[in-house]
Amino acid sequence: MSSRHSPTSTDAAVDIARRFAEEVWNGREYTAIPELVHRDYVLHDPAAPDPIRGRDALERHIRDSVRAFPDLHVEPRLGLGEGETVMTYYTTTGTFDGAYGPLSPTGRRVAVDGTAVIRYEDGKMREEHLYYDTADFRKQLGVTGLGFLRQVPSIARWTLRTVRARLFG
């Protein structure tokens, strides 16, 4: 390990992951992000088209998720680690009552089990990889098969807005 990085104990890293779920995701205490998350944080989420980079982008991602699932709750079930890397097993629940990217709300309740592998640097979350069944998540949202066809107009509008914003600012 490079001398510029302060070591994070496994117990401390597990506690940071638990606090992140409880305070930021569940408590909506976004002011806790700088205390728990490294300034160069990167999130790899299979539902996101690109990595989410930095604290501001992470906060936007969480706020967007909470707008889509106002009752969103993350329940950490198990935290294991070695050195500055922690794996947490969690269950996320919520009701799809708001727009989620290009998707229109379906009012359906979801419960998704997943695993997060988190690397720490300087005592803060530096990089996180999420692993969960995205096909099951889409099925629970009601956006597969005929449910997906009902989403096509919403997806088209979202795509057009996104392209316009990227091209014309």
Rank of each mutant, 00 (worst) to 15 (best):
H73S: 13
H38N: 12
L36A: 05
T95H: 09
F137P: 04
D56Q: 13
A12Q: 08
A99L: 05
Y30C: 05
A135S: 07
T95E: 12
D64Y: 07
A116L: 08
P34E: 08
I16G: 06
R60K: 15
T159N: 08
E23G: 10
S6R: 15
A135M: 14
G142F: 00
E75P: 03
R157V: 11
G27S: 06
V152K: 04
W25K: 12
G123F: 07
P46L: 05
P7E: 13
G123I: 10
G81Q: 07
P76A: 06
A111I: 11
F137R: 12
A17V: 15
E35Q: 13
D136Q: 12
D71F: 03
T162P: 02
A165R: 14
L130P: 00
R55D: 01
R150L: 05
G54F: 07
F69T: 12
H38C: 05
E84V: 02
R60G: 11
E29Q: 15
R55G: 06
G27H: 05
G101L: 11
T106W: 03
G107K: 12
R161Q: 09
T95C: 11
D136H: 11
S3F: 12
R119I: 01
V110L: 09
A156Y: 05
H73T: 14
E22H: 09
R119T: 10
V163F: 00
D113M: 07
G147V: 08
V163G: 03
G98M: 13
V163T: 08
M87A: 15
R150D: 00
R60Q: 15
A48V: 04
P76Y: 04
A135F: 10
Q140W: 10
G101K: 08
A57E: 09
I62C: 02
A116C: 03
L160S: 05
V74T: 13
K124W: 00
Y41N: 11
I16A: 14
R108D: 03
M87R: 12
A32L: 04
G83E: 09
F96H: 13
P70F: 02
F148H: 10
A32T: 06
D40H: 10
M1K: 10
I62L: 11
A48G: 07
A17H: 05
R109N: 05
F168A: 14
Y41P: 06
Y90T: 12
R150I: 01
V14E: 02
R53G: 03
L58T: 01
R138P: 01
E23K: 13
A12P: 01
I52W: 01
S9Q: 00
P49N: 08
E121D: 13
T85V: 14
L167H: 03
G123Y: 04
V86W: 01
T10H: 05
S6E: 12
A99S: 11
A156W: 10
P105W: 02
H5W: 12
L58C: 00
R166M: 13
Y120S: 07
P76T: 09
P51C: 05
T134S: 13
R55W: 00
R109H: 11
E23P: 02
R63D: 00
M1T: 09
P34C: 08
